[in-house]
Amino acid sequence: MKYNLTYYAVAALLAGAASLVSSHSFAASCCGGGSAASLVVPKYATAIVDLTFDAELYDGYWNHNNKYIKDPPGSDLQQYRMNVGVGYRFATNWQASLALPYVWNDNSYSGVSSQTDGLGDTTVSLTYELLDDNSAWKIRDTHDLIPGISLGLSLLVPTGTSPYDDQQSSFDITGRGFYRLDGTLLIEKTIRPWNVSCAISYGTYLERTINREYGKYVAPYKKDLGDRFSASLSAGYAYVIGTGGDSITGTVSYVYLNEADGSFNGNRDTGSGFDKQSVGAALSYTNNDSNWSIRTGWNHAVKKDGWGENFPATDIITVGVRYVFL
């Protein structure tokens, strides 16, 4: 089951955008829920380009009572995403980024099958680095304990196909149809070879008017989606290969995502909110000589009662490559 593609496209969009984070927080954010996406340019660099492929495999859902329920027999639901991201440092502590996903929906039930694709929703972000992490090898004084802290502001732009476009089927949806403004706090600390990070995000959608639903014009009304909160925790270990500085970093993560009830014409739409918990693991390889890095990740929804509400349970497999411009 898929919250139909509407729902899924939504989760897709989120996941796609969220995967464009720094290597440390990447694993924590690649999951459907992630925080407002930000493509973090390393302190020593001026820009980065990131290309990520996600395969999101749907396997049941949690209902409004937090009970896990299997998909209908014979169903096979996937969404694939290609996320292109660019980040640019335009001042010592300031950077901006743009993340653009392209979405393929591939859904088969026993009685119906659909394959569609289209542009997803775009995320533009602005990040200010409040404190720098010195990434100490040893703690020699309290200064070495200071974490890196970044504050971000992201705007989700509804460039995807939503239920309010001229699309008759929920299978065609690749975006949510609403602008959303997110504030993000990212705290990272590296004491080599270990690193931990915490990302917290709070977002609010902008109310809009709607005069069409799945291709059918309706009496215009106003709709708003509920505020969104996400938090992720991740921990990683970097293993240096040889003497050249190349490294492989392994990361594990936990992510919580919650969206409150939406509203119609100002009246609360009880039961439209959702939440989800997931865990993840990722591996990244960084080559210091060529400025390239590659990574792969797996985000897993625990398919048991109590790990989500009103949301699809999915596994997301990610493969990405990134280039850093010095």
């Binding site: 460039t159 609403f178 215009p220």
Partner: peptide
Amino acid sequence: VLLSACGDNLFPSGEDKRT
């Protein structure tokens, strides 16, 4: 070019277009 293909979501309409 990308934005031109984005349908009505960027600039939602409140006009009643029911025929």
